[in-house]
Amino acid sequence: MHGIWVQGPERVLFACHECDWLHRMPAALPEGAVARCRRCGAVLASSRPDHLVRTLTLTFATLVLFTIVNAFPLLELKLGGRETSVTLLSGALELGHHGMWDVVILVLLTSLLFPILHCVALLYVLMPMVMGYKPPGAVWVFRSAHLFSPWGMIGVYMLGVLVAFVKLSDMATVVPGVAVYALAALLFCSTAAGNALDCCDIWRRIGEVDDGHP
């Protein structure tokens, strides 16, 4: 039987999310380090220097880009003297005209609402934390952010726009709108924000102020 002693002050207990294997790890990893599960190789944690400020900046940029994406058309179509365009919102709502409200809700949630709520939740928790205090309800808000994140599908949406662009180029003149470039930048910022975010450290901070839990 392998005996592992319960965490000392500088080490924390980690259980792998994929195989449940126990690890004792330093609370703060050295720079550039990635901790992998000894049994299954899943990434347990990685060092994310300056994660608070970096995530905050990138999340703020994502939210700003969201307003730009929403204000301009993604694609414009010109055919026989007629012109049409599609925006993130008009595209999502279009199927409502055909009575397919289930699809409208699905598209609205995955392309608009969940990604935006995710950003707002992160900003709500991170902004005060950078300034050194904990916002009220941080536990609840950060938990919600964790729930929203798998349902944001901006990357998939971007692919959908590219496929639509190529497909329609065959039959008409398609002009990519300002929103396409903003959407590409948004995708980059939100991915970078996701990579910068150190959930473990944020939970540690939330826990510390809340009930003095290490």
């Binding site: 055919l79 007629r82 279009e94 199927l95 055909h98 699809v103 599908m153 959908g160 329609l168 039959m171």
Partner: peptide, 25 residues
């Protein structure tokens, strides 16, 4: 797999060219 759903919403919103071309979901 959501790509197809996004694609249908984009195409049906864009292609409303009356007699020339329309796409309906």
């Amino acid at each position: 797999s959501m790509v197809d759903i996004f694609l249908v919403t984009l195409l049906t919103t864009l292609v409303k060219m009356g007699a020339l071309a329309t796409i309906e979901p």
